[in-house]
C-alpha cells in the first residue's frame, strides 16, 4: 500500500525501552503530529523513520518497500531539525541547493529550483545572504525549503517551531499546514505543543512511555479521548471517579447522575468532562453541591474552581454566560451525561 507503515517497532537503549511495540499507518499525503511529553519516545520514533536510529526490532515500510535498514542518505526524505541545522558556512541559496548538489544536479537546474523555493517561502532575492543574518522565522522557512528541495516522499519535522516566539509560531503553523496541503506531501511533525498539533494535523498520535495511546483526528482526540492520559494531556479536563450503584446508574461523589451509564459489568470508571462543559447553577436542583474556592478572570474566559466533596472541579465560561459567583459561595455543578466521557483503562 502507499504510505508509511510501522510494524511492531521497538527501540531499546541498553535496558531502557524508548519505543515499545509501535504500529502505525500513515496514508500518503497525510499530515501527522506526534504529540507527547518529553521522553515519550516520539523523537526516537521520528529518528527511526529518518534512519538516524535503527530499530531494535520491527519493520518500517514506505510505499511497500522495507526501508528499515536503508541508510538515511538513500531514503530521499526531507527533514527539519529542532536546531534547524542550517549550515553556517553556506549561504541561504547554497543551503537550499545542498541536497541537489549532493545529487549532482545541473548548476542551472539548482539555481532554478532555489529561486522557486525562495519565492514559495516568501524570501525571494535572499539566495546570497549568510544564514547568520536571518531572523528566527526566516531561518525556519529556509530550513523548510531546504528539506523540500528534492520534493521528498516524506517530510519530517522535529519540534520545528519550538525556537520561535508564540505569535510567530502560530503564524508558521498555519503556513506550514497550507504548504503541506498545496504540495500533498506525507508529513510527520513531532511536537509537545498540543495547540500546534490541533492546528496542523490530519491525525494526532498521542504517545506516552514509548507507546501510542491514541491515534485519531484532532477533534476525535479532544472529544473522545481513549484514556485518562490522553484526556488530561490534550487540553484541560476534570477527571472524576464514578461508581455503579447496582441499578445501572452511575454515582459521582455519592450522588446519582441521571442518564450516565458505565460500561456493562464495570463497578468503577473514570469520567472526563471538559471545563467548558461544566455548568454552574444555583445550589440544589439535581446538581452536585460545592463551594467556590478561586476565580480566575482571563478576560475572554473565566475559570471557576469549585470544591466538591474535597475534589476540585474547574468550570470555564464566557463572561456573559457566567453566573455571578464569589469565593466561598455555595454553587451547584451540573453534569450533562452526553458530555461526560467514560474512559477505558
Amino acid at each position: 500500500m502507499s504510505g508509511l507503515v510501522l510494524q511492531n517497532v521497538v527501540k531499546e537503549f541498553g535496558a531502557f525501552r524508548a519505543v515499545n511495540d509501535v504500529d502505525l499507518t500513515v496514508p500518503h499525503g497525510t499530515f501527522v503530529c506526534m504529540l507527547g511529553p518529553s521522553g515519550c519516545g516520539k523523537t526516537t520514533l521520528l529518528r527511526m523513520i529518518a534512519g538516524l536510529d535503527l530499530p531494535t526490532s520491527g519493520a518500517i515500510r514506505l510505499d511497500g518497500d522495507d526501508i528499515t535498514r536503508v541508510p538515511t542518505h538513500k531514503r530521499n526524505l526531507g527533514m527539519v531539525f529542532q536546531s534547524l541545522a542550517l549550515f553556517p558556512h553556506l549561504t541561504v541559496g547554497e543551503n537550499i541547493a545542498y541536497p541537489l548538489r549532493i545529487r549532482k544536479a545541473q548548476k542551472e537546474e539548482q539555481r532554478r529550483r532555489v529561486d522557486e523555493l525562495l519565492s514559495m517561502i516568501h524570501l525571494p532575492s535572499y539566495a546570497d545572504r549568510p544564514v547568520s543574518k536571518l531572523s528566527g522565522g526566516q531561518r525556519q522557512r529556509v530550513a523548510i525549503a531546504r528539506a523540500l528541495a528534492i520534493s521528498p516522499k516524506l517530510f519530517l519535522l522535529d519540534e520545528p517551531l519550538s525556537a520561535l516566539d508564540a505569535k510567530l509560531r502560530e503564524a508558521m503553523q498555519v503556513e506550514l499546514r497550507q504548504l503541506q496541503q498545496k504540495l500533498g506531501i506525507t508529513t510527520i511533525v513531532v511536537t509537545h505543543d498540543q495547540r500546534e498539533a490541533m492546528t496542523m494535523a490530519d491525525t494526532v498520535v498521542v504517545m506516552n512511555g514509548g507507546e501510542i495511546r491514541q491515534a485519531a483526528s484532532p477533534i476525535e482526540i479532544y472529544r473522545r479521548p481513549a484514556d485518562s492520559f490522553v484526556a488530561d494531556f490534550i487540553g484541560q479536563t476534570n477527571l472524576i471517579e464514578a461508581e455503579a450503584d447496582g441499578q445501572g446508574r452511575a454515582t459521582v461523589f455519592g450522588q446519582a447522575v441521571a442518564g450516565l451509564h458505565l460500561p456493562p459489568g464495570a463497578r468503577k470508571a473514570t469520567i472526563s468532562i471538559r471545563p467548558e462543559d461544566v455548568h454552574l447553577t444555583a445550589p440544589g436542583a439535581g446538581a452536585l453541591s460545592g463551594t467556590v474556592t478561586f476565580v480566575r478572570d482571563l478576560g475572554g474566559t473565566i475559570e471557576t474552581f469549585v470544591d466538591v466533596a474535597g475534589r476540585q472541579i474547574v468550570a470555564v465560561s464566557t463572561p456573559r454566560a457566567r453566573p455571578e459567583v464569589a469565593v466561598g459561595q455555595p454553587v451547584g455543578v451540573a453534569l450533562t451525561p452526553d458530555v461526560c466521557v467514560v474512559l477505558g483503562k
Partner: peptide
C-alpha cells in the same frame, strides 16, 4: 545535527 541534516539530504 548538521551531520544528520546532511545525511537526510543524501
Amino acid at each position: 545535527s548538521l551531520v544528520e541534516a546532511a545525511a537526510t539530504m543524501g
